[in-house]
């Protein structure tokens, strides 16, 4: 497979805020790029940095993390802060390995922000298209 292929992005969403926002985007028929596939988690703090790296190793080109808007909206009180610290450090680490840190994006939502989630998904897919595929998929 060549580097020409279109990009594929995964969005890990907290099911309480970003997840509901994504669902509401559907109800309101807000279109966004189909190149992003969402996985709902109880909380983005469930995500381990190695899940993100595993995604890249499997040819996923970008990882979006949609958590609850701080400070007061996290369903589990402080999960968003945990996710932020982990992903912030992971991005610094990725840069040292020559893997574009822009391939990981964190954003924060409250449930009514369904237009925002569509907009963020689109702009992230565009950003990843600009960066190109993380590698030829299927090589790992």
């Amino acid at each position: 497979m060549s580097g020409e292929r279109d990009v594929l992005v995964i969005g890990f969403l907290s099911r309480w805020c970003a997840g509901i926002a994504a669902e509401t985007a559907g109800v309101n028929r807000i279109k966004y790029s189909p190149n992003i596939v969402f996985i709902n988690l109880p909380c983005v703090s469930r995500l381990n940095p190695s899940h993100v790296v595993d995604a890249f190793l499997n040819g996923i080109d970008g990882v979006l993390i949609g958590g609850c808007l701080p400070p007061g909206n996290c369903h589990y009180k402080t999960g968003n802060f945990k996710a932020f610290k982990r992903m912030y450090l992971l991005k610094k680490l990725m840069a040292q390995f020559g893997v574009e840190p822009e391939r990981v994006k964190m954003d924060w939502f409250v449930t009514p922000q369904y237009e925002k989630i569509a907009r963020v998904a689109d702009s992230f897919v565009e950003e990843i298209r600009r960066l190109g595929p993380v590698m030829s998929r299927g090589e790992a």
């Binding site: 381990n48 400070p71 802060f81 450090l89």
Partner: peptide, 29 residues
């Protein structure tokens, strides 16, 4: 290494997260 990030991200300034917010945590990291 990735596991360690998970661990540090859990306990760094864990009682002051809401005060320092993301910029404060980023400055520390």
């Amino acid at each position: 290494g990735l596991r360690y990030i998970g661990a540090i991200g859990s306990i760094l300034m864990v009682k002051r997260e809401r005060q320092v917010m993301f910029p404060g945590l980023a400055r520390e990291l």
